[in-house]
């Protein structure tokens, strides 16, 4: 792809914590309009990477830029959906979705009618005036997505947003997300440790390897769109899945070597 298609540039980013290096010298691009999924075993720095892209955390060295501007804090042009439910419990569904709009000074009336359209889009019009605790986990995450999108971000960062949902709901949510992406002009960085999810959603899959978090590979997913559930049984899907699984497994095995563990502990 050409340079003009790049939305986010991650350059030589390292994030060290007191006792560990979560991300080490990671560089990649996120293309405008794509859905990039990030996979890797637990603790390999996926959340840390997403938080740095959101501006909620900053790199120890290296930099991340969006549209050529270096990120130095959170901003509504980078929405984030967390694994934990983070709707504001004191606001109704529609008021949650209005949040970004009213914070930016938009009038109540127009903000509300705009928010209602988002609520309609996620299929929760009947719940517009309910409070978050009256909603199921899947519904809450749908509202969280709408709330982020209402801010008109350039990119939507999603950190295992469906991680707490049961398998069936999770599948429905994946469909919802893909449908939304068809209708809205948005770039998505989606973090998961579920390989099926990663492949099903992705244009590209970024594989991280742990200790320290480094890029193992970036894999193109050239499966046809729109994606449907049967795809998971196709030869291409299974092949890709096996490839990614062995990549992650390989990276994990490296980590599990006793010698490695010893040096880690003494470090």
């Amino acid at each position: 792809m050409s340079d003009t298609d790049t939305l986010i540039e991650v350059r030589q980013v390292t994030r060290r914590f007191a006792e560990s290096t979560a991300i080490k010298e990671v560089s990649f691009d996120v293309y405008r309009g794509e859905l990039l999924t990030v996979v890797g075993s637990s603790g390999c720095g996926k959340s840390t990477l997403a938080r740095m892209m959101a501006g909620l955390d900053s790199p120890t060295s290296g930099e991340i830029s969006i549209d050529g501007k270096v990120i130095d804090g959170p901003s509504p042009d980078r929405g984030m959906v967390f694994q934990k439910y983070t709707l504001f419990p004191w606001l109704t569904v529609v008021k949650n979705v209005m949040f970004a709009l009213t914070v930016q000074g938009q009038g109540r009336r127009s903000a509300e009618s705009e928010a209602m359209q988002w609520v309609e889009m996620i299929g929760l019009s009947d719940f517009a005036h309910r409070y978050p605790h009256e909603l199921s986990g899947g519904m809450q995450q749908r509202v969280a997505i709408a709330r982020s999108l209402a801010a008109r971000p350039k990119v939507l960062l999603m950190d295992e947003p469906f991680g707490a949902l049961d398998a069936q709901t999770r599948q429905k949510m994946q469909h919802h997300l893909l449908t939304i992406c068809e209708h809205v002009d948005i770039t998505v960085v989606f973090i998961t440790h579920d390989l099926d999810e990663a492949i099903f959603l992705a244009d590209r899959v970024l594989v991280l390897k742990p200790n320290p978090g480094e890029i193992q590979d970036i894999v193109n997913v050239s499966l046809p769109k729109p994606r449907c559930i049967d795809l998971q049984f196709s030869h291409a899907f299974v092949e890709l899945r096996t490839k990614l699984a062995s990549m992650i497994h390989h990276a994990d095995e490296e980590e599990d070597l006793p010698m490695h563990m010893l040096t880690m502990k003494h470090a």
């Binding site: 959170p74 929405g79 949040f99 801010a151």
Partner: peptide, 10 residues
């Protein structure tokens, strides 16, 4: 997390 979510919303 509520504060962080709010920050990403501006």
């Amino acid at each position: 997390m509520l504060i962080e979510a709010a920050k990403t919303l501006g």
